[in-house]
């Protein structure tokens, strides 16, 4: 019998938010189409390190395993990405896994991204409707504009773009590309745009779009291929126009 082929993982672990990180190495049996989440599941079934030491199963967050929910974002070989969609065949070994430290670490690879959901409140990330009851039929929409909205609406709040952005972190209060660009989405809607000024004004405040340094890292890592920089640029123009308007309207 030939020797079982294995995949080598080096995982940065951390027992609690304030404790010191450490690494543990694991060998996981190889199989075709194995992805990083599936490999972590194998470690759950046999939580033993490469050196044969029994340990606790690695903690991480995942749900859909189809790259739609955004939960399993982590840093894999130095790059922020979805673990479920990272096939071990496509990344060099040993595979380094680390938590996305732009966010507070909860445990091991699990992080706290609540700040992103808070930012969605700030940019008023919803359409103001009177209620879920019957009102009017919604207006027809230009199918091309709708297609743009559809692209942006794929954002799954995974946080890859925040992890990759040099301006998100303790040195700055930038809310990051994802929540910022969501403002553009709601401003596209036929009556979402009634609140356009509110959203643009919210982006003039501290941590808004002026904190974007245009490093263009976000667009490189977005797992949904959202043209983040294009919409950031567009928003920047809208915000500037709004700022001038605010001056003249005073």
């Amino acid at each position: 019998m030939s020797e079982q082929k294995t995949v080598h993982f080096i995982i940065e672990r951390q027992d609690s938010p304030d404790s010191k990180p450490y690494t543990e190495e694991f060998l996981v049996p190889y199989r075709p189409a194995l992805n990083v989440v599936a490999a972590l599941m194998e470690i759950q079934k046999n939580p033993v390190t490469k050196d044969g030491k029994k340990t606790t199963p690695v903690v991480w967050e995942c749900n859909c395993l189809e790259k739609v929910c955004g939960a399993c974002m982590m840093v894999i070989n130095g790059k922020a990405r979805q673990a479920c969609a990272t096939l071990v065949d496509h990344v060099p070994q040993p595979i380094h896994l680390a938590p996305a430290r732009t966010f507070p670490v909860i445990r091991d690879l699990q992080i706290d991204r609540s700040v992103m959901f808070e930012s969605l409140k700030r940019i008023q990330g919803w359409i103001e409707i009177d209620g879920s009851w019957e009102v009017n039929t919604a207006p027809i929409q230009n199918p091309y504009t709708a297609a743009t909205a559809y692209e942006i609406a794929h954002c799954m709040t995974c946080g890859c773009c925040l992890e990759a952005c040099p301006n998100v972190g303790p040195q700055s209060d930038f809310i990051g590309p994802a929540p910022t660009v969501q403002a553009y989405l709601f401003n596209l809607h036929p009556f979402g745009k009634f609140d356009k000024e509110k959203r643009l004004n919210s982006l003039m405040e501290k941590g808004g779009i002026t904190s974007c340094g245009n490093s263009q890292n976000c667009v490189q890592v977005c797992p949904k291929n959202i043209k983040l920089t294009t919409y950031l640029a567009q928003l920047n123009r809208d915000v500037n126009k709004q700022a001038l308007k605010n001056i003249f309207d005073k």
Partner: peptide
């Protein structure tokens, strides 16, 4: 059909025909 109209008002980016319906 009423639920669809509600979702449309909430901004769901439904796929549209050439005339925007």
């Amino acid at each position: 059909p009423k639920l669809i109209k509600m979702f449309d008002r909430m901004g769901v980016p439904f796929t549209r025909t050439a005339e925007g319906a």
